[in-house]
Design a protein around this nucleic acid. Structure first.
Lengths: 198, 198
DNA sequence: AGCTTTAAGCTAATCGAATTAGCTGACCGC
DNA sequence: GCGGTCAGCTAATTCGATTAGCTTAAAGCT
């Protein structure tokens, strides 16, 4: 038979696309094999295992997300950069639910490549936040806050977690503006506990 | 042989405990069976399938989390209630990682019981936020913002997503205070886009 | 063009986890 | 004590991941 001319990268790409369609959790070797046009066992010539394929998808997805975020934020700064970052983040997640689920897996600490793929988005995030000089606020804290909020919203939305009819776009804008407000006000350490009821 | 005296609720409870130990994703019928002291097929006398067991765990977990949050916030209001809510939320997630993962699954919309179990936490959240009368801000938006942020942080932390050495407790406090600040400042709709660079 | 080497793909087989079928005996109410 | 019900069991099925071993397309060399 004519060969399919497969390569590890092609298998990972197919897996990523499939993950977006059927869900990262429902990915199977059989599905991927069918997609690339070979029998299941043939995949093992290109990837070590389903687990390894998942890791590959995760790494690739983190890179894609990172690239997307870079492109969205270049040339912007301050609250504007945060909005661009947030919008690009959510759009990417909604467009690539399976890939996004893949990015959430904790990187394998023994794997250099895996660990690095996650760093880029973080670096961008820190750059974006460089414009917010909330006194006493650590940039890492701010980055974690932003990342947590965006990740939380995106993952709840993409899991269908928002049951109520309230417009989701609007809620997202509210979230982003709330964070921008909060970060701008410089609300980190316990000194912020003054002015409680305000 | 003497009977094990099992009941569906006991199987779900054992499954929940096991999920906390091995991870919700790694739950298997074999593991649960071993835990409750029967052979695997016997479980099917109490639960319909692994999938059904997972749903049961999810429902139970949402109820437990809801109860915990109620207990943590009764008698408090305003920013104080938000802090208590946030602290209780995170503590519960860290103590019950498997159950928490179970709560994230989108409820089955065809299942009345499933849908209801998620509502309680939301109701509490809305109550907690009643104290924040940010003009123009919809309570649902605020609830979603808070939920997203807390869920995001908790799920990243419990997935080992924070690689850096920076103290995580501190970052969490920062996140909560940032939200309190932001919500207090009333930053919802586009009118908030005034005062950009601030 | 013919020869060799490599490795992509295949079929058949193994393994493990979920689930189903059908049997047996423990406990409940009489 | 007797009968019915149902928890639990063993055996069997199914399906997906993975391994073993064969075949031959493709690439390189002479």
């Amino acid at each position: 038979m004519p060969r399919a001319g497969l390569a590890p990268a092609a298998v990972v790409a197919a897996g990523a696309a499939l993950a977006d369609e059927v869900g990262f959790a429902n990915l199977s070797m059989g599905l991927v094999a069918e997609r690339v046009g070979v029998r299941t066992p043939s995949l093992y010539k290109h990837v070590d295992s389903l687990e390894a394929l998942r890791r590959g998808i995760s790494i690739q997805a983190r890179r894609e997300l990172g690239d997307t975020l870079v492109r969205a934020t270049v040339g912007r700064s301050g609250p504007d950069a945060v909005r661009a970052f947030a919008d690009a983040y959510r759009r990417w997640v909604l467009d690539h639910p399976g890939r996004y689920a893949a990015t959430v897996r904790a990187p394998d600490l023994d794997d250099e490549e895996d660990r690095r793929a996650g760093d880029e988005a973080l670096r961008i995030l820190l750059d974006v936040l460089a414009g917010f000089g909330s006194p006493g606020a650590d940039a890492i804290d701010a980055a974690r806050a932003l990342r947590s909020a965006l990740h939380g919203f995106a993952s709840l939305e993409s899991a269908g977690g928002f049951g109520l009819p309230r417009d989701v776009d609007r809620s997202y804008r509210f979230l982003v503006e709330t964070l921008i407000n909060g970060l701008g006000a410089g609300g980190s350490d316990d000194s912020a506990r003054a002015g409680d009821t305000a």
